[in-house]
Simulated assay, not measured.
Amino acid sequence: MRVLVAEDHRVLARTVAAGLRRQAMAVDVAHAGDQAERMCLLTAYDVLILDRDLPVMSGDEVCSRLRELVDPPRILMLTAAGELTDKVYGLTALGADDYLAKPFEFAELVARVRALSRRAPKPPPAVQCFGDITLDGTRREASVDGRPLELTPKEFAVLHLLLCAGGEPVPHDELVRTVWDEHLDPRTSAVRATVSRLRGKLGDPGLIAADKGAGYRLCD
């Protein structure tokens, strides 16, 4: 899942981003409204966590402008304006998909982000299987031939993306774009290293094939 956190409080933005990355999400950060809008025009984010009180361009304006897109991200307003009238205005007049007032519990934020991502068209099933591999996206659990796998967030996200592809190749660039974030140099060995560790944990290196020029895919 690709998430953009638009928050001008840099410590909070950094904390939220780090926490979401531990939940196997790819997270980018914007500190101003115009920057958030520009990033959403360039990248297909699943969810935008949007502060209403942003510099340069307010979160309200960002929300309204993004709603004009054919396929906008799901928008979760995360703001100190927590009165009922504020929530109603954000959800109706501005068109936000969800609204969470500060201060908030991080577990609730994660739950709301995941709920928003499930509203996207044709979401993958919660439990996915391919051969002996089973992945439960809701419980964040995976197993091979009934053996539980201890996966890092990045390994889990890579396996999830490969399962969604159903045996078709997933290009290297798509793995970088979906599992990592804008700061990863696509020339680094991060993807290759993560896939290598995942192969080892699956117990059979042949379960993930590398097709030169096409990417990685699961094998029966």
Rank of each mutant, 00 (worst) to 15 (best):
R119M: 15
S189G: 15
V179R: 12
A126I: 13
E182H: 00
L135A: 02
G206A: 14
L184N: 07
A96R: 01
K102W: 02
G137Q: 14
K154L: 08
W180K: 08
R112G: 09
P103W: 09
P125L: 03
L151F: 08
D185L: 02
P186Q: 02
F106D: 09
L162W: 03
H183V: 12
S143K: 03
G146H: 13
V127P: 07
H183R: 01
R119Q: 07
H183F: 01
L207W: 05
A93E: 14
E182A: 00
E168A: 14
E150I: 04
P124G: 07
S189M: 07
V110D: 05
H172E: 04
D97R: 10
L135E: 12
T152M: 03
D211C: 13
L116G: 10
A115H: 13
D132E: 14
L159C: 11
C129S: 15
D97Q: 09
T188Q: 08
D181F: 05
T194S: 09
V144G: 05
D181V: 05
D132Y: 00
L100H: 09
R118H: 01
P171E: 12
E150S: 02
L175D: 00
L198D: 13
P169E: 00
V195Y: 01
R119I: 06
R199H: 02
L175I: 15
A165S: 14
L207A: 08
A107M: 06
K102A: 04
D97M: 11
E182W: 02
D145N: 15
I208R: 06
R114P: 07
A193V: 02
K201R: 04
P125S: 06
G95V: 00
L100S: 10
L175F: 08
L202N: 13
E182T: 05
D185T: 01
E174N: 03
S189H: 15
R139L: 14
A107D: 15
R177T: 10
E141I: 05
A190Y: 09
E150Y: 00
L202F: 11
D181S: 13
K102D: 03
P205V: 03
K201P: 15
R139D: 13
A193F: 01
G206Y: 08
V158Y: 11
R118K: 13
V170F: 09
V144R: 15
P124L: 07
A193G: 02
G167N: 01
F104D: 00
L159H: 11
V158N: 07
K122Q: 06
L149A: 05
S143Q: 12
A126P: 02
E168P: 00
E141G: 04
I133P: 04
S117M: 07
G90T: 03
T92H: 03
A126H: 03
R114F: 03
L163H: 11
G90C: 05
D132P: 05
A111I: 07
D136K: 02
A96P: 05
T152I: 10
A142G: 05
